[in-house]
Design a protein around this nucleic acid. Structure first.
Lengths: 213, 213
DNA sequence: TGCATTTGTGAACAACGTTCATAACCGGAG
DNA sequence: CTCCGGTTATGAACGTTGTTCACAAATGCA
């Protein structure tokens, strides 16, 4: 046969990626995969434990590409000699926004998938790739010289990331159609601008008289 | 029979809510509902078009309660005579965070559900309830006197909401277990503080030399 | 009471993920 | 070349899912 086991796995992952991108996670059906890959249904289970395992493989590939996009954006900034914190953060945000826009179905599928897996809580290679992204942000913030110690730097990076994430995936989208992308970007610009100004002004975050319930 | 059609609908919705809360959206099975409600499987389809319709009804109830929580938080602030913008925004954020914490499974289910429905795009009564919340935020920002015109006020409100949303649902949670809630709240405090400081400083958002790809 | 309409019922259907007995295949030993 | 132990491929079969539909029961009105 022309195809190794490894090759067939990657081919199946590629097919799965297309299926998810075409119709969300619920479009990832064993029989469709088998037909498109030219194999039997049962053979899928020789390559992956179950369909969730295949979805996880697809998500790994997605996260890898997201990491590449972030690193590429930073490399481009460095090559161009851009040291301005605002522009660097906006470049990272633009990388993320572009990535989400390029994967309008598989990225939400990844988010939904991750939410389901909280109970079993394996160490997860997910987190490694994710915290790499957070460290990129933290490094940019450190270069901004806002006088943040390591702990607050980590918190600030997480805050910024989660905020951009919330804006880009845009929660609910009560929007008609086209100008959605524009307004999303306006929000990102506002967030980054306000974040930097806020960090510049107050030395750090000081008094915190309100507590969570 | 003791139960009206309306009453039975609400009872089914209540059962559905419990099922979703117990095991996510995928735990909402027709036969389980039928058994717990003491009716036949087919009868469910006399009350709701399909299971998605039932899930939508559950989500409506959820959104209603979220709106109530937000309004209650504002009313409490008003009764206490609190006019400080920071404290009012934190009260709203705390209401949202508390709501999410109180519905750890059904709220993610709502988010995932909404993402699936983008293609058919009905006018949706969702949006009405949502923009009510946004207007609460906008009103608080307006009282803060940052010199924002109506358009920028709307954008700022959406930015703030989406950011808090991103933080609270916390994207991915590479966290072990307990102090997660604490760190989430630290992030919310940082965001709100930095947001206000940023708005106070720069009159509005001015130059925007970077554009989306 | 009798009839028209609505509501309730559960067996039946298609589609799904997953399993498993069986067949095909493969690489070296004799 | 021939066999044979072990890996891989196969698709029929199983249990569960959402949904439908012919039929039974109930209900309301004249």
């Amino acid at each position: 046969m022309a195809l190794d086991k490894e090759e067939m796995s990657e081919r199946v992952i590629a097919i799965a990626e297309d299926l998810i991108e075409a119709g969300g996670a619920e479009n990832l059906k064993a029989r469709t995969i088998a037909t498109q890959a030219g194999i039997a249904v049962g053979s899928i289970y020789n390559l992956f434990r179950d369909i969730d395992d295949l979805h996880r493989a697809v998500n790994m590939r997605l996260l890898g590409r997201l990491g590449e996009a972030g690193a590429a954006a930073m490399a481009e900034m460095e090559k161009a000699g851009v040291t301005d914190t605002r522009q660097r953060l906006l470049a990272l945000a633009r990388a993320y926004a572009g990535f989400v826009a390029a994967h309008p179905a598989s990225w939400p599928a990844l988010l939904a998938f991750n939410r389901r897996q909280l109970p079993h809580a394996e160490p997860d290679a997910y987190e490694a790739r994710l915290s790499a992204l957070l460290q990129i942000i933290a490094r940019v913030l450190a270069d901004g010289r806002f006088g943040l110690d390591e702990t607050r730097l980590r918190i600030a990076a997480r805050t910024l990331w989660s905020s951009v994430h919330g804006i880009v995936t845009s929660g609910y989208a009560p929007n008609s159609a086209g100008r959605q992308a524009d307004e999303t970007w306006e929000q990102v610009e506002l967030l980054v601008a306000v974040f930097i100004k806020g960090l510049e002004r107050g030395g750090t975050f000081d008094h915190a008289e309100t507590a969570p319930s």
